[in-house]
Design a protein around this nucleic acid. Structure first.
Length: 261
DNA sequence: ATGTCACTTTACAAGTGA
């Protein structure tokens, strides 16, 4: 297992041509997808299989939904997590591949700090962290990858002064990320990269991409044995360009993690 | 910050969530 990609596709149906092209372009061993916005029954499994990948899906109609695509054998599939305050929302999917435990995650967005959704986001993060700590060990080979909907610190925001205290950049959210790191996870995107960025998300509105208004909210967090194997972490920024490939882009770009054998 | 996108409904526009 040498290459893992995480990508919030914002509808796997709409993004299918670009997803198939991504698989051909990067030849990843495993892909974590978020916001597939469909059920397991409706997932385009045959198209993905034609590209050489098995699809493991934790789906939900219309909203949320996560999936793992793998060209290597996958075992011990777990959908969701014990203690989830909103188990009807499909946000977490865990698999084991080539001795590595992979947790694909789509964190609650939170909307804005004054919203009830923000309180849910913090509660959800606490429950997720508690489950992770109870069910895993920091000495195990583990990677938690996905859309965290949190910028870990000011280096992850194009305009920290504008964003300070707001949803995606507020201190309580960032404290939850630090909680995961304190337990024993390393932010692979910050290995040998002091930033700013690289950003992984640009809002569709206001021409954010062309103005450089990006955020780093898609993360790969890993335990020490995995971090020691990490050789590179890159963002496929081209994938966010409206003129790149077939169809429209997602508002997120894929994050590509390479590991030594 | 807001020049969009994808989804749904009782659908040919408007609301929701991101």
């Amino acid at each position: 297992m040498t290459k893992i990609i995480t990508w919030n596709v914002n509808s796997v149906h709409t993004r299918l041509p670009r997803l198939v092209a991504l698989l051909a372009r990067h030849q990843p061993d495993l892909v974590c997808l978020q916001e597939i916005k469909t059920t397991a029954e409706a997932f385009p499994a045959s198209e993905v299989a034609a590209a050489g990948y098995q699809a493991v899906v934790h789906g939900q109609a219309s909203r949320n939904g996560v999936a793992v695509l793998a060209r290597v054998p996958v075992t011990d599939v777990v959908r969701g997590f014990a203690g989830d305050p909103v188990p009807e929302q499909a946000r977490v999917l865990s698999v084991t591949a080539d001795g590595l435990r992979v947790v694909c995650v789509y964190v609650v967005n939170g909307k804005e700090v004054s919203a009830p959704e923000y309180e849910l986001k913090l509660r959800w993060l606490d429950a997720f962290t508690a489950w992770l700590r109870e069910s895993h060990r920091p000495t195990d080979p583990l990677i938690v990858a996905g859309d965290f909907n949190i910028t870990p610190d000011d280096r992850d925001v194009y305009a920290p002064d504008v964003w300070r205290g707001r949803n995606l950049a507020s201190e309580p959210e960032r404290a939850r990320i630090r909680g995961l790191l304190d337990w024993g996870l390393t932010d692979l995107g910050r290995l040998n990269n002091e930033g700013p960025g690289p950003f992984t998300f640009w809002d569709y509105r206001a021409g954010a991409f062309h103005r450089g208004w990006g955020l780093r909210i898609d993360l790969a967090l890993a335990t020490a044995p995995v971090a020691a194997r990490c050789t590179s972490v890159t963002v496929d920024r081209d994938e966010r360009k409206p003129t790149f490939g077939e169809g429209k882009p997602s508002d997120h770009a894929p994050l590509i993690v390479s590991l030594r054998e």
